[in-house]
Design a protein around this nucleic acid. Sequence first.
RNA 1: GGGUCAUUAGCUCAGGUGGUAGAGCAUCGGAUUUUUAAUCCGGUGGCCGCAGGUUCGAGUCCUGCAUGACCCA
Length: 482
Amino acid sequence: MYYSSMEERLKKLKRLRELKINPYPYRFDRSHTFSRIKNDFEELSRSQTIIKTAGRIITIRRHGKTIFATLNDENEKMQIYLRKADLGEGFEVFENFDIGDFIGVEGKVFKTRTGEITVHVEKFTLLTKSLRPLPEKWHGLRDIEIRYRKRYLDLIANQEVREIFRKRSKIIKLLRNFFDGKGFLEVETPVLQPIYGGAAARPFKTFYNALNQEMYLRIADELYLKRLIVGGYEKVWEFCRDFRNEGLDRFHNPEFTMIEAYQAYTDYYGIMELVEELLEFLVKNLYPSNSLTFGDKSVELKRPFKRIKYTEALKEILGVDILKINQSELDRFCQRFGIKTEGQTIGYKIDKLFSELVQKNLIEPTFVIDYPKVISPLAKEHREDPALVERFELIIFGLEIANAFSELNDPIDQRKRFEQQLAQKEEGIAEIDEDFIEALEYGMPPTGGLGIGVDRLCMILLNQPSIRDVILFPQLRREDAR
RNA sequence: GGGUCAUUAGCUCAGGUGGUAGAGCAUCGGAUUUUUAAUCCGGUGGCCGCAGGUUCGAGUCCUGCAUGACCCA
């Protein structure tokens, strides 16, 4: 099928080889990229400098004894101009070139009468022969499935997609600069873990033959980073690729990137300031103003961010303290708002109510603080209310962007919380990580900890509607038929 | 897991009530020495996602399946 569309190109490949032209040579040293040619045009034109440059052919306009073509390099387009009068017999070789081929060219630059900067080619070299036709030049590649499955075509056809991932890379760099500037040590902890924990999620399981034991891909780094605080580091952080064996939708990819950061001697208030500073730093370095747009909504990032208390926000809507009502009252509220209660834990029901009734509507950057203890097994009990913990989430555009605690460092309380989780058959824990408890028993100083979903952060910073638009190769079901 | 929608040429898309499958771009041949979505003339290209069913006849109607998008759980 596709073979027939490739036939012509294979014929040209054969003809090129017959002309002793290597369609896949090894190297081409450019003197200028296209953007440098454009920047330095006046000087290059005046000095009649012969430049060497290269790119992928994206359009060809043949006019008998002349040819115009447009090349693409990573950042720019460049028109080239070839004349039979300049190239003699070599001119015919270009007949075997197609849209998609990479070529290198040498020549002087000039402006056409419409003012377009153009390379007047004196010599050209095939750098790679392309055997398949590219997506159409005008409409680009729209088919969202092909865009995700064959991202390379998306990147070739859609410049704005290239730009998104450049910006993602910039965000990653800014995050690194930020934590580096704050004196945090960037560390690497195991992806492959014998006991998983640190979040409420199902893990991917695998098997390690040499040790003859089951292993898990991490769902979070929390328990390892805290071990490092026990070990004496005072500020550690990590870019963590985490894996959660759950559904995938607009906000979830099974494999995703988090930042976790832990700082000794501080609490969740300290982390709140850190997060405010971080957001301000990111937006300042990405945009001229401090406003953010996501879909049809815009917000101002102004410190200090609004703070609301978890239980008080719910109380405003339900009229009661969610932690002071009994099971059947809780179930009644759930039913009233269409939340399934069957077989669900108390924590699930409370949190579901919260995200439906409160979180969804928090558009402006808002710290939701003081979570129920029952849904926060790794956070330290609130200093004023034993039913709560010192925890906050940062919500922007209704999305959870950051999650942070005053970290629980009482090993006896921690064991009790793990045991309760196990008894409730909650997700995220299959057995108690005894080594982690033991580490706490040696003593972890008071610590503030932070997690940030980097993909979601990129979504709101880059105004992309789906997590798949900020992940180069998002997970899709395997489809062999194509 | 449930609902809605989508799947037609390499790409982007048309194909009222069932009657021989279409356009633009790309591609191929021809013309063209400053074009730029080049232009002009002439061609090639289809398991209409897959499998059944209804019908004299299905891209179109029905069922199932696959993949994807969105919404819900």
